[in-house]
Amino acid sequence: MDAVQSLDEAIESASTAVESADDLEQLAAVETSLLGPDSVVGVVRKSMGRLDPQERPKVGAKLNEASVAIGGLLDSRRSVLEVEEESRRLADEKIDVTLESITIPSGVKHLVQKVIDDTVDIFVGLGYQVASGPEAELAFYNFDALNTPPDHPSRWDSDTMYLDFGDPGDEVLLRTQTSPVQARWMESHDPPVYIVVPGRTYRKDTIDATHLPVFHQIEGLAVDSNLQFSDLKGTLLHWAREFFGPQSEVRLRPHFFPFTEPSAELDVSCFSCDGGQPGCRVCGGAGWLELLGCGMVDPFVLETAGYDPYEVSGFAFGMGPERLAMVRYGIDSMKHFIENDVRFLRQFG
């Protein structure tokens, strides 16, 4: 049998051999048997040099035809087997998507910090700056500058914690409110003043569901040439709608604070029951949530700061982030805010 005939037969029979390969490994063996050195194609290729020069072009052409044909068969079979093999591998690689096998570490901001940041951002959006001040504070800034009478019970050591520091004339205490920052700020800044003051405050209260000896306040103060009572209402309405949702309404009720006149308490409509549903978990059916104290800055406070109360006016408000968090997130006790139980904290990630 001459070489051309052998190659034709090799081409003829290659198809069956290639198709019989079930995986890439078998296909490699088939490739060796069809195109390797011991295959018909390999033997013919080795013998080419010894061929009669007249035969050579014919055999060469056939050899080429065989290589291309068999190679093509192998390639197309390989493509099929590769797809099959990848499918098998992917099937084997299946993971249980319900299993948390790897955890990316992720912690949470404290809820009180979140409420502070959220509220601060609302006022920053209104053009406020953020101020802070000493926690160990002079009685002057905590009380006198804010129009607290010398005999007021809030000054007594049953209510306020005093520190063993300094001159008797400059009594130092743990501030009971963030309002002293108002006084300090006004002392060193001319109007217009638009500030919010988040910070820690201290009262001599035993820990229970509604009291902590150390808690936070966010104080707000605006003093400008043209601020009116309606501006206080509008500002707090804006805050309430940003904080509790756009459906919120507010109302101001008369109250008393020594550093504001008129003074008011702010009620925000209940965000949960949409107004006075009996037994509402959030408002108890009242429809309104009593949230914070506010008012127009008392002229005494402005004068103490060196401002002229007939030339500038302003408003102030003070809110408790713990109280806001309790209302907003349905928290039953203030103790949670200082216990640092991760089971509590991580609910608010």
């Binding site: 209104l126 053009g127 400008d224 309606s230 501006d231 209402k233 509008g234 500002t235």
Partner: peptide, 8 residues
């Protein structure tokens, strides 16, 4: 009273 917003 109305609710107004100052321009700070």
């Amino acid at each position: 009273f109305d609710a107004t917003l100052p321009t700070g």
